[in-house]
Design a protein around this nucleic acid. Structure first.
Lengths: 147, 147
DNA sequence: ATTGAAACTTTGTTGAA
DNA sequence: TTCAACAAAGTTTCAAT
C-alpha cells in the first residue's frame, strides 16, 4: 500500500462518485491506470462498497439511538447479531468490551416505533437493553484515513 | 416525496455508483428523468453526499471505539463538537440524552494512539471520557430507509 | 417526462518502460 | 508489474418537445 493508493481511497471516501478521469487528474495518473488501481482496491477488499449518505431526519426516520445489549442468560449461545440482523431499523452492530456485549445503532420514525423495536430485540435475542437517544448529529461518517 | 424517489434513494444508498441508465431501468424511468430526480434530491438535501466504504482494519486503523464525554464544568459554554472537530480520528459526533453529553466514534491505529487521542480530547474540550472499545464489527452503515 | 444528439467516461486490449 | 494510448461501448448532459 503506498501513497497513490491512499490518495485514491481518500478521494473516493470523500466523493464516491468521482470519475476515473478526475481521479487521474488528482493523482497524476492516466485514467486507465487509476481505473486498474481502483478495481484492485475493490478486489483486495480495501474498498468495501459505495453508498449515498441520506438525510434520515428528512426521510421520516428522525430518531437515532444507540442500544447497548446484554444477554439475560450468559450461558446461552451468543448469536445476537444473527438474531437481530433482520430488523431493518438496525444500521450498525458492534460487539464491544465492557459492561455490555453489543452496541446497535438504530433509526426509527417515532419514540413509539423505537419502543416497539426494543421489545422485539429483547424477545428475539433474549437480552436486556439500555438505550441512548441521539439529540443531534454534528457529523457522521466523516472520511477517516491514515497518512 | 413519493415511491419513485424513495426507490431511487434506496438504490443509491445501497450502490452509490449506480449509473443513471441502471437507475432508470430499475425504476421504469428514462435516463434523463432519473438524472433530474437525483439532482433534485441532492439539491433538496435528501442526498447529502456519496462515499466509498473503506476497510479500516486493513488500512492501518483497526481500533474502533466509542467515547462518551461529559463536561468537567457544566457552567462553561458547551461547544465540545467544535473543540474536537479538528481531530481527524473522530468519524462521528452526536449529542445524546442521558448521563453523557456527547458520543464520539473514533478510529485509531493502536491502543497507544487511542490513549493519546483521549488525552487530547480531554484537554481540548475540558471533559471526562468513558471509552467503549469495539471488538468486532458485524455490520456498519447498512442502508436504512422507510417504506 | 421523454427524445435525441454531442460530449464525456468507462473499460477492454495492446504494447512500452 | 505498472502505466499509457487507443477505440468501442456505455453514460451524462443539454436542448427542444
Amino acid at each position: 500500500m503506498e501513497a497513490t493508493d491512499r490518495k485514491i481511497l481518500h478521494l473516493l471516501a470523500a466523493d464516491g462518485r468521482m470519475s476515473y478521469t478526475d481521479l487521474g487528474k488528482a493523482t497524476g495518473l492516466s485514467t486507465s491506470a487509476v481505473h486498474q488501481r481502483v478495481k484492485r482496491l475493490e478486489q483486495r477488499g480495501l474498498i468495501q462498497g459505495y453508498g449515498a449518505a441520506l438525510n434520515h431526519a428528512e426521510l421520516g426516520l428522525p430518531l437515532t439511538a444507540f442500544v447497548a445489549i446484554r444477554p439475560m442468560d450468559p450461558s446461552q449461545p451468543d448469536d445476537c447479531p444473527e438474531r437481530v440482523s433482520g430488523f431493518t431499523e438496525i444500521e450498525s452492530c458492534w460487539s464491544v468490551a465492557g459492561d455490555d456485549s453489543y452496541i446497535l445503532k438504530v433509526r426509527t420514525a417515532t419514540p413509539a416505533a423505537l419502543e416497539e423495536l426494543l421489545a422485539q430485540i429483547r424477545s428475539a435475542a433474549n437480552v436486556s437493553t439500555r438505550t441512548t437517544i441521539a439529540l443531534s448529529t454534528y457529523y457522521e461518517n466523516r472520511p477517516v484515513t491514515e497518512g
